[in-house]
Design a protein around this nucleic acid. Structure first.
Length: 445
RNA sequence: GGUCCGGUGGCAGAAUGGUGAUGUAGCGGACUGCAAAUCCGCGAAUGUGGGUUCGAUUCCCGCCCGGACCUCCA
């Protein structure tokens, strides 16, 4: 029994799928003009936790996440780089996939690209013009917000308030300042497709409406993305889709994740607190980053700091140690404490807190607890490697073991000076020794 | 300016109309040749002023502070 906060209702609601045999989820994916940054990762992580949970609760989940591969930022970047647009988007998409894969984020079932769905978008635009929700003006096609009474309902703002606070000049061809572009004309050096309105390219919002419709139908279960997409992107998607397919529901649940800050401020290149996923993964294994994200509820603002990443690594050290000591076995069930936490609006901080008593028991040799811990961690996308890999991969084990042997001999001879010298030498190389009743073990510090 | 969200121990972070999880850090102890790891124990928090209530951290209002969005940023 899953409860999710629904942005539209502004409260937690019991999740009831339209079709319990096939839960359908759409998340807004990346615009592929540059490497993904830590902020982009937040939404992808949120979707990952959601989909992983839905997969244990329902027999089938169809998860679609688009790639926006036509956009003025892409055009501009390709020009700067002196690179073909298609080369830029292909390269960036591949990098995006690599970054997410290293964090254990499961790929979507369907990953539609905007440029492959121009006909679907034009089809929707045509219908919207026909039924009076859109109009042509100076080569543009615009959506008429005033013809859609519940415009603003999703994001909780009134059209009049928005216009009062507007800080951008309104294009003269708009009938209403709130109208937004479905299709816009392309200059010869901009990407474009032939259409009844002339050669042009789609507005941003229409692609998600067209692709969600194509793959998930007129009505589907969950639509998600970052909080910053709520307005205008999701508001506009909803307006387009509902007007295009009267009687449909579009998304029945809306999920929005909070923003990520870096050192207390919004990431920006000039502040020096802007990090791509790649940059972080060059300095840290991936799992601490995942744990850092999961340590905050998805709807709250999350502040990324290197100290938190380090703390996450220490927590993982302890959890992996518990798995090792408890000799965790695969394929146990996820303990109810963890599953219940996730079912309460994806409460990952509570789920992680529930890991610790399992770790305590596992530490004392409780294999059932250790196996439960493993299953729980895997449900959260953690424990992608074995404890042995976590603690001891990537270094020359035989050299270390030789030194351990030498140190053992020194200790037997009560030559502690030599024994400590060896331990300090290994410590300097990032290796920590642990003398236990069963002998000496080692791990990466 | 408009709309919205949030302010919990040193730090992170749950929960709740009635004794405020968990982690991390700190401190003390056990264990250890000394460490590391582990175990035991300790101290430590609901921004502020009102209101509702037998009782508020939780609900309501004001204030202060932080953040997001306001036409293409996850």
């Amino acid at each position: 029994m899953l409860r999710l906060h629904d942005t539209h209702a502004r409260e937690k609601r019991q999740f009831t799928p339209l079709d319990p045999q096939n839960v359908r989820v759409y998340f807004c994916g990346p615009t592929v003009y540059d490497r993904a940054h830590l902020g982009n990762l937040r939404a992808m992580m949120c979707a990952d936790i959601l989909v992983r949970l839905l997969r244990v609760l329902y027999p089938q989940v169809t998860y679609a996440r688009n790639v926006t591969d036509v956009d003025d930022k892409i055009t501009a970047r390709a020009r700067e780089n002196g690179e073909d647009i298609s080369a830029l988007t292909a390269r960036t998409t591949e990098a995006f996939h690599e970054d997410l894969a290293s964090l254990g984020i499961l790929p979507p079932d369907i990953e539609p690209r905007a440029t492959h769905h121009i006909p679907e978008m034009l089809e929707m635009i045509g219908r919207l013009i026909e039924n009076g929700h859109a109009y042509e003006a100076e080569g543009h096609v615009l959506f008429a917000v005033r013809n859609f009474p519940s415009y603003g309902e999703l994001s909780g703002r009134s059209l009049d308030d928005m216009i009062a606070g507007a800080r951008v000049e309104v294009a003269p061809y708009k009938r209403d300042p709130g109208d937004f572009v479905l299709w816009k004309p392309s200059a010869p050096d901009q990407p474009g497709w032939d259409s009844p309105y002339g050669r042009g390219r789609p507005g941003w919002h229409i692609e998600c409406s067209a692709m969600s419709h194509r793959y998930l139908g007129e009505s589907f279960d969950i639509h998600g993305g970052g909080d910053d997409l709520l307005f205008p992107h999701h508001e506009n998607e909803r307006a387009q889709s509902l007007c295009c397919y009267p009687g449909s529901k579009f998304a029945t649940h809306w999920l929005h994740n909070g923003m990520l800050l870096s050192n207390g401020e919004k990431m920006s290149k000039s502040l020096g607190n802007f990090f791509t996923i790649r940059e972080v993964l060059e300095k840290s294994p991936a799992e601490p980053l995942r744990l850092l994200y999961l340590g905050a509820h998805y709807r709250s603002t999350l502040d990324f700091t290197w100290d938190k990443l380090e703390e996450a690594r220490r927590i993982l050290d302890r959890l992996y140690r518990a798995l090792e000591r408890g000799d965790a076995q695969q394929e146990a069930n996820v303990p109810a404490t963890v599953l219940d936490a996730l079912c309460d609006d994806l409460n990952t901080p509570l789920a992680i807190a529930a890991l610790h008593p399992l770790a305590d028991a596992a530490m004392q040799g409780d294999q059932e607890a250790a196996s439960g811990l493993l299953a729980a961690g895997k449900q959260l996308g953690l424990f992608q490697v074995s404890p042995a890999e976590w603690f001891r991969s990537g270094v020359d084990a035989s050299a270390i073991e030789a030194l351990i042997e030498e140190r053992l001999a020194a200790r037997k001879a009560r030559n502690f000076a030599r024994a400590d010298e060896i331990r300090n030498q290994l410590a300097a190389d990032g290796i920590t020794l642990e003398d236990g009743p069963g002998g000496t073990t080692w791990r990466k510090a």
